[in-house]
């Protein structure tokens, strides 16, 4: 089960930054976006398709372009190796029929980068299991 703690976020960052496709399709994907797992929120700083930094040190002065916020349970299902119906995609979760994820802020930036963002989020399914993640140093 994905923990969405600092170690897990760093493990996801590693998977993303080792992904060869993202360096191609994410060439123009540069922004800071907010991702919320229930109460726990992080700002993800993306530069040309790479995650440069993830921080949970947020204040009202922390800028971000768009936000993806969902209950932990939604993200847990999304991050499964084979996600169940209605949870396999952020637009599926955010669609007005379902409302399991909220898209906020300057969503134009999100739609401009939707392919690279979708690919980046799908990499959550490749984050190694908890035991492996535990061994890694936390950087958040």
């Amino acid at each position: 089960m994905a923990e969405f703690d600092s170690r897990w976020m760093n493990a996801w960052q590693d998977v993303v930054n080792n992904d060869a496709t993202l360096s191609l399709i994410g060439r123009y994907f540069t922004t800071d976006f907010l991702i919320g797992f229930g109460e726990k929120e992080y700002r993800v700083s993306v530069r040309e398709g790479r995650i440069e930094r993830i921080t949970d040190n947020l204040s009202i002065e922390t800028p971000w372009s768009f936000a993806l916020r969902a209950p932990r349970e939604s993200w847990e299902r999304f991050a499964q190796k084979v996600p169940p119906p209605m949870y396999n995609d952020v637009w599926a979760m955010a669609h007005p029929l379902h409302g399991r994820l909220k898209m906020d802020g300057d969503v134009k930036v999100m739609w401009q980068n939707i392919r690279a963002l979708t690919w980046m989020l799908a990499r959550m399914r490749e984050v190694p299991d908890h035991a492996v993640v535990e061994e890694r140093a936390t950087r958040v």
């Binding site: 084979v82 119906p85 396999n88 995609d89 007005p96 969503v107 401009q112 939707i114 979708t118």
Partner: peptide
């Protein structure tokens, strides 16, 4: 309902990438 949204035709958004990616999650992981 729910699919008549402006981002699918907005000139600031790449129509091909956005339209195609908006439907990608409609397909089963299997």
């Amino acid at each position: 309902p729910g699919w008549y949204i402006s981002w699918l035709e907005h000139p600031h958004v790449h129509g091909g990438e956005a339209c195609a990616t908006s439907v990608f999650g409609l397909m089963a992981p299997q």
